[in-house]
Amino acid sequence: MADSTMEAPRWCKGCGDFGILSALKNDMAASGIAPEQTVHVSGIGCSGRVPNYINSYGAHTLHGRAIPFATGLILTRPELQVYIESGDGDALSIGGNHLLHGINKNVNCVFVLFNNELYALTKSQTSPTTRQGHPTNTQPDGTWLPPINPLRIVLGFSPSFVANTADWMSDHLAHTLAAAREHQGFSFVHVFQRCPHYDPNAFNHRDRSWPVFLTDEAGIPPDKRYKDAANEAHDPTDYHAAMRLADSAHTHFGLIYKDADKPRYDSILQAAASGSAPESELLAHFRL
C-alpha cells in the first residue's frame, strides 16, 4: 500500500508531531525491515495518532495502555519490529505504572515519549511535565507544582537505553531512533515536542546555541546543524554520570545511559516456552 492512500495527519500547522512522524518513517526505511514486519503501537493523545499515519501494522490502543498491549505482542511475536508512541500524559500520568514495568521488563521495542509538556488533545490541561507557573485550563493561575523529571524516574528503574532528543533536530532525532532500534531491549527515547497551538513559546528551539550535545564513540552524534552548540563528553555506561545529567540545570541531548546486559523478560519467557509436551497427556496427572 503506497503512502498516498494513507490517512492524512490531522495535526495543527507547525506541530512537532510532524517531525517525529517523518523521522519514524525514515527510520523504518533505513532499517530495511519490511513494513508488514513493523508494528506501531500508541496510546491516546495527539501523539497517539501516529500509527494511523504510517504504512505499517498499527494499534492505536487506550489512553496510557500502549505498553501492555505491545508487551503481549512482543512476547509472542519476537521477530516483529515494534515502536511505541506515547504522550507525556499518556506515559507519565495514566500509564505511569506501565512505563515503570516496561523499563524493568526491558522487552525489545523503541519507546518514543512525545513530551509537549501538556495534555494537548483534550485542550490544554496540566500534565506531569508541565512547567510550574504555566497556565492551563485546569490550573488557570499557573501550574501549581514543579514538573516531574522523566529521566530521573526512568533511571530509577535501571533502564537499558535512555536518550534525549527533540522534534526540531531532525538529524539528531534520526540518529537517536536508529540507535534505539539497534539496541536490543526497551529503548526509552525522550523527545521534546513542540505544541505551537497551546504553548507556542515552549522550548528554546530557535536558539541553536542552547542545546548541549553529549559525545561519545558509543553514543549519538551531535546534530550537524547546531554548530554553535556546546558538546560534552559523557560515558553512557556510567550510571551515576547519567543521574547527574538528569539532575543538571541544562538539557543534554544524546545517549544518556545504556546497559546492554540488562536481562530481557521477553527473551527469558521465549526461551522457557520451548517445550512441546504432548497435549494429549494433559489430564494424565489427574488420573486417580
Binding site: 500509527p51 494511523n52 494499534a59 487506550l62 511475536r77
Partner: peptide, 12 residues
C-alpha cells in the same frame, strides 16, 4: 502482522 502486505491498523 507479518502475514499480509495489506496492513491492518486498529483503533478504538
Amino acid at each position: 502482522p507479518g502475514h499480509s502486505p495489506d496492513m491492518r491498523r486498529i483503533t478504538g
